[in-house]
Simulated scan of single mutants.
Amino acid sequence: MAAPVAAGLNVRDVVKSDDPSTWDECWKINLTPWDVGQSQPPLQDVVECGEIPFPTQGRILVPGCGRGYDVIYLATKLNSNAFGLDISETAHQAAKTHLASVGELPEGSSVTYKIQDFFEFRVAESERFDLVYDYTFFVAIPPPKRPQWGEQMAALIKPGGYLITLVYPIDPPVSHGPPWFLRPDHYDGPLGSNFVKVLDKVPENSLPSHVGRDHIMVWKRV
Rank of each mutant, 00 (worst) to 15 (best):
W23E: 05
Y113C: 10
Y69W: 15
I87H: 12
S109D: 12
E127D: 11
P173E: 13
F181L: 05
W149M: 02
P4T: 04
E204N: 07
V167F: 01
I87F: 14
F54N: 00
T165H: 12
G84W: 15
Q38C: 14
L163S: 02
V11F: 04
D35G: 00
P173R: 12
Q44Y: 05
L85M: 06
A75F: 04
D214P: 03
F121A: 13
I170A: 09
P53T: 00
R12M: 13
G84R: 13
K201A: 15
V139L: 11
A154W: 07
V36T: 09
V46S: 00
V218D: 01
F181K: 08
K96R: 13
A124L: 12
V211D: 00
L9S: 07
V167Y: 01
V36Q: 13
Y187A: 00
F83W: 04
R146L: 04
S110R: 10
L74R: 01
K197Q: 05
Y168G: 02
D70Q: 15
R12C: 12
C65I: 09
E48D: 13
R59M: 10
Y113I: 02
H92Y: 15
D24H: 09
T90V: 01
V132D: 06
G84E: 14
S101H: 08
T97N: 07
L105G: 02
G192S: 13
M1Y: 04
N205F: 08
P4H: 01
V102S: 08
I72Q: 03
F121T: 11
S88V: 02
E25M: 12
L191A: 04
D214L: 02
K16S: 14
V14F: 09
P172Q: 09
S101K: 10
V46P: 04
T56R: 13
P4K: 00
G66H: 06
E51N: 06
R67N: 15
V196F: 04
P208I: 00
D19L: 11
P106Y: 15
D214M: 04
F83T: 06
S101F: 05
P172F: 14
S109G: 07
L163P: 04
G37Q: 03
D130A: 08
G161K: 09
H176L: 10
P55I: 01
E151K: 15
W23P: 00
D171K: 14
I29V: 14
E107C: 06
P184A: 07
R213G: 02
P143G: 01
F118R: 10
P179L: 11
R221T: 05
R221E: 10
H186V: 02
P179V: 06
F137W: 15
T90A: 04
R128C: 08
P143L: 08
P203R: 01
P42E: 05
L74D: 06
L74V: 03
C26N: 11
G177K: 15
D45W: 03
P208M: 01
T97C: 07
D35M: 01
Y187Q: 02
D117Q: 05
A155F: 11
F118E: 14
P159G: 05
P147I: 11
E104S: 11
I216S: 05
K114D: 05
P190T: 02
P179S: 07
E151I: 14
C49P: 01
T136V: 12
H186D: 10
L199S: 03
W149T: 00
R213N: 12
V218M: 05
V167G: 00
P147D: 11
P106I: 02
P179G: 06
